[in-house]
């Protein structure tokens, strides 16, 4: 097993908790490329999901800023609003999907510390509910899914041409596209005969290449250098694993078993994409964050002293590495909190 080499590390003394007013469960923390901002979601079990950004300096978060999309404070709205799934642009801003109650889910652009969020693409440019935004590594192309045809197709927006194009449109819904490191291909999942399978798509072509199917769902894929890592529950609905398969096709290998499935993100990677970061769904192991090398060379355990740890995300900036994750305290709180710890030298 790839877990053969496991090093146990203890949570460093440098740990910080992000606090906000109003309670709710924190989820899906995502670092900006330079590590100076952290975006996360808060679900307060009141039929809405709020979106926050928080500035982080040397691992210390400041007061988070709740992001309201235009019209989000309307007295006419009923029910909850939704703002989630942050994806950072390599040069600073963040895109996320959001909807006012009863409205379409659209993509929004936020320059943290700047003006209020703005709808990224107008309905005229990209109709329907938009979701799963992902930005190419060079920051020039955005891919997302749209419900415009009712089938969840993949669209791309090119910064150079200022145009939106239908990239993948089939009779079955496409989900969770992610760019290859060179930006020339996408990996995505599709509902295929009742379960999700993985496909790759070379931009500029019209076909998708099946990558991994089989029993259970193969879900939320992403590139890790020449491999693709993804979540799979091929062992049964109660068992989510992380697997890796060469992007060019080949044998899949299990990287981690019985992981806590993140709220809505793909498997988390170290900044150099050499290892996956995850937490465990096993109660005995749910107080740690695990870092497993994709080459099978070993796993490191980062103990947090908290429980039900989830949604781990790491960034390296200025020579230091910081880990963000959500967790329940060992006692005394109903809400899942967001934590940031310095893990420099530990991954």
């Amino acid at each position: 097993m790839t877990l053969a080499l496991t090093l146990a590390l203890t949570l460093s003394a440098h740990a910080a908790e992000v606090t906000w007013v109003g309670g709710g469960h924190a989820g899906n923390p995502q670092w900006s490329a330079d590590g100076s901002w952290l975006a996360f979601e808060v679900n307060n079990n009141a039929d809405k999901v709020d979106f926050y950004v928080v500035k982080v300096a040397n691992g210390y978060p400041s007061a988070p800023q709740k992001i309201a999309i235009p019209g989000g404070s309307s007295s006419f709205t009923a029910g909850g609003s939704y703002a989630a799934n942050p994806n950072w642009h390599p040069r600073g801003p963040v895109l996320f999907e959001a909807a006012n109650p009863g409205g379409l889910t659209r993509l929004y652009f936020l320059s943290p510390g700047g003006s209020s969020p703005a709808e990224y693409l107008s309905v005229a440019q990209a109709p329907g509910n938009l979701s799963w935004p992902t930005i190419s590594a060079d920051g020039t192309t955005l891919a997302f899914t749209s419900s415009a045809t009712g089938q969840g197709d993949v669209y791309t927006f090119s910064q150079a041409t200022n145009k939106v194009a239908v990239t993948i449109s089939t009779d079955i819904p496409e989900n969770a596209p992610r760019f290859s490191p060179d930006g020339k291909a996408l990996v995505l999942s599709k509902k295929n005969q009742g379960t999700e399978d993985l496909f790759t798509h070379t931009l500029g072509t019209t076909t998708q290449t099946p990558l991994k199917g089989g029993s259970g769902d193969q879900s939320r894929p992403r590139y890790a250098k020449s491999d693709i890592v993804y979540f799979t529950n091929e062992r049964g609905d109660e068992h989510w694993d992380i697997a890796a398969i060469p992007a060019a096709g080949g044998e899949r290998k299990l990287v981690a078993q019985d992981v806590r499935l993140p709220l809505r993100s793909q498997p988390s990677l170290t900044p150099d994409a050499s290892a996956v970061i995850y937490t465990s769904s096993a109660p005995a192991k749910d107080s740690s964050v695990y870092v497993t090398k994709l080459d099978g060379s070993g796993t490191k355990e980062i103990k947090t002293g908290l429980s039900a740890v989830g949604d781990a995300s790491i960034v390296t900036a200025g020579g230091r590495s910081f880990l963000a994750f959500t967790a329940l305290p060992t006692s005394g709180s109903d809400w899942r909190q967001l934590h940031v710890i310095d893990v420099t030298g530990q991954i």
Partner: peptide, 11 residues
Amino acid sequence: GEEMRKLASRN
């Protein structure tokens, strides 16, 4: 004013 807020929520 109320109409503005309502319209803004629909972009």
